[in-house]
Computed example of a mutant assay.
Amino acid sequence: MDTRYVGIAELADVPSVAVVIDVMRAFTVAAWAFARGAERIVLAESLDEALALKTRHPDWVAIKDGPPAPGFDTVNSPGMLRSMDLRGRTVVQKTTAGTVGALAVKDASLVLCAAFAVAEATARLLRSRACDTVTFVVTGEGGRAEEDLACAQYIALRAAEGTPAAAADQAAPFLRRAAASRAAEELATGVREGVHPDDVPLCLELDRFPFAMVASWDAGVMTLRAGEVPGAGAGDV
């Protein structure tokens, strides 16, 4: 499998297969939303669009980065989301990097959104599709976010043919890189707003869930859905 790692601004063409990475915190949050029962996640292009969707669909759950704001139900924090009951609900998510990255590759034939929480399932899906070339979109810090790059490289390793089965042993150096990242420090020290004390540990949980998250253009919006992948491990929710 040929791989390339690019920032959002470096996407000069439409990739065939794109894996969009946002570990801290968009796609860890998305994974938790599905684990809490969400049916789908609509990735909004702007805060205004997210609020407009919420206005048209009051039963939808709207999420944004940063501190709480009028019109939004919660913030982009896995620690806060994990206590919510989202069974059968549609979630609208707008973040600084993750949702932007997914929308930037909306015309790709396959778009996956990922974090460490769904790494193995994502890798297995790539392997099952026999993807020859995969573009990993490193969304944070203009493509330089260490936690996103580490996650992307780990998924690529797991997706490669003949990769050994000891995922936890392989993951250790990648998780250490993520734990030492600028994003982890900013979350842990309160530089970023809308943070739960458990956010960093939750973002560093490996293979918590057995599903991969596939995004597609559906009725004028980018929609993320979860699908279980046979053989992918998961912890207890």
Rank of each mutant, 00 (worst) to 15 (best):
A172H: 12
A35V: 07
A102S: 10
W217E: 15
S128M: 15
A26G: 00
A234I: 04
E39K: 13
R4W: 01
A232N: 07
T139Q: 03
E193I: 10
A52Q: 10
V200E: 05
A97G: 05
G162F: 02
L110M: 12
I155W: 00
D218T: 13
A166D: 15
D22C: 04
T163W: 06
A35R: 05
R192A: 06
R144W: 13
M24F: 06
L187M: 06
G140D: 09
A172M: 14
G71Q: 00
V6Q: 09
A115F: 03
G194N: 11
S216Q: 12
L86Y: 10
D59F: 12
S181T: 05
P210R: 05
E186D: 15
G231H: 12
A160M: 14
R129F: 01
L47A: 09
A178H: 02
L126G: 02
C113N: 13
V137W: 04
M1K: 03
D65W: 01
D198L: 07
A12L: 15
G142F: 04
A102C: 09
A119L: 11
E161W: 05
V6H: 04
M1Y: 08
G220V: 05
A115D: 10
L126I: 12
V20A: 09
V138P: 11
A156Y: 02
A232R: 06
E49K: 08
L204N: 01
G66L: 01
A188W: 02
V214N: 00
D132G: 14
R82P: 08
L86P: 06
W60K: 00
A145V: 04
V191W: 13
G235V: 02
V138A: 03
V134M: 01
V118Q: 03
A104V: 12
E10R: 06
A52Y: 04
T96R: 06
G7P: 11
S216R: 10
L47P: 05
K64R: 14
E120S: 14
S16P: 13
A234C: 13
M84I: 14
C131K: 03
V23A: 03
L126S: 02
A226K: 07
W32N: 04
V138Y: 03
A52E: 14
L157E: 14
Y154F: 15
A102T: 10
V134F: 03
C203T: 07
V14Y: 08
D148C: 07
M1H: 10
A117I: 07
T95M: 04
S216M: 10
C203Y: 02
A167M: 14
A184S: 15
K106F: 09
A219D: 15
A114V: 07
F211L: 07
A219M: 12
R40C: 15
T90K: 11
G88T: 09
A12D: 15
P67Y: 00
E141L: 12
G227H: 13
A9I: 14
R25C: 03
A188V: 05
W217Y: 12
V23R: 03
G66T: 02
